[in-house]
Computed example of a mutant assay.
Amino acid sequence: MDLRQLTPDLAVSAQIQPEDLPALAEAGFRVLINNRPDDEVGPGEDDETMRQAAEAAGIRYFFNPFTPGRITPDLISAQAEALSAPGPKLAYCRSGNRSTVLWALAQAGQEPVADLIETAARAGYDLSGMRPLIESLAAPER
């Protein structure tokens, strides 16, 4: 597993396996956020399999599939809800990038845009192309 810490309470990762869940629970993770659509994975990594493995390990599970290029307000809201769950969290997708994008969009307006982009960059994810969208979400409504 290639866990990349974004915040003290959130790490992101590429695809994990069901057998990784006991070790993640032992490491202190209490929430798993699956941002990978089922049509990208096989039956051993689908939503239901990952949900069962997470629950068996005592980890709260959220399924918020993010298809590239299809960002919606509901997707951002669902990620914000999952991120508000108590305890250390791990969000994953194919590479960790989509999970990082959703984190930044959910945090827009709560932290400076430059800080969000810098945090992502330190973890190895370039969100500079997302700056206009993050800024638009951070802007107060008129």
Rank of each mutant, 00 (worst) to 15 (best):
A82I: 01
A91Y: 05
I71P: 01
T119W: 00
S84R: 13
L105W: 05
E111Y: 11
A106H: 03
R131W: 07
L75C: 07
R70E: 15
E135K: 13
R60Y: 11
S136Y: 09
V113I: 05
A123I: 05
A80P: 02
S84P: 08
G129A: 14
A121F: 10
T72V: 04
E135C: 10
N64S: 01
S95V: 02
A108F: 02
L116S: 03
R70T: 12
S136A: 15
A91N: 04
F66M: 12
D126C: 08
F63Y: 15
R60W: 12
A82S: 04
V101K: 04
Y125W: 03
R70S: 13
L133K: 11
R60F: 13
A123L: 05
L90N: 07
L127F: 08
N97V: 12
W103L: 08
R122G: 12
D115N: 14
P86A: 11
A108L: 10
I76F: 01
P112F: 10
I134P: 01
E118L: 11
P88C: 11
P88R: 15
L127H: 02
E81R: 12
L105P: 02
S84I: 08
A120E: 03
S77D: 15
F62D: 08
F66I: 06
L83M: 06
G109Q: 09
Q107W: 00
E111M: 12
A120R: 06
I71W: 02
A121C: 00
P73W: 07
G87S: 11
S136E: 14
P132L: 12
A104M: 05
L137H: 12
L102I: 08
L127Y: 09
S128L: 11
A114Y: 10
I134Q: 01
Y125C: 04
A114F: 10
A91T: 03
A78K: 07
L133G: 07
F62P: 09
A85R: 08
S136R: 14
P68V: 05
W103R: 02
E81D: 12
D126A: 04
W103V: 05
T100V: 08
P68E: 11
P65T: 07
P86Q: 11
V101Y: 01
R122Q: 15
P86C: 02
A108G: 04
Y125F: 15
I71H: 03
L105E: 06
A104R: 03
T119I: 11
G87N: 10
A91I: 01
G87C: 06
F62K: 03
E81I: 06
A114N: 13
T72M: 09
E118M: 07
Q79H: 14
P132Q: 12
G69R: 00
A80G: 12
L127E: 02
V113A: 00
F62S: 13
V101D: 01
D115Y: 10
P88N: 15
C93R: 02
N64M: 04
S84L: 04
T67R: 15
S77Y: 10
P132H: 12
D126H: 09
I117Q: 06
G96Y: 06
M130C: 07
A91V: 01
N64K: 03
P65K: 07
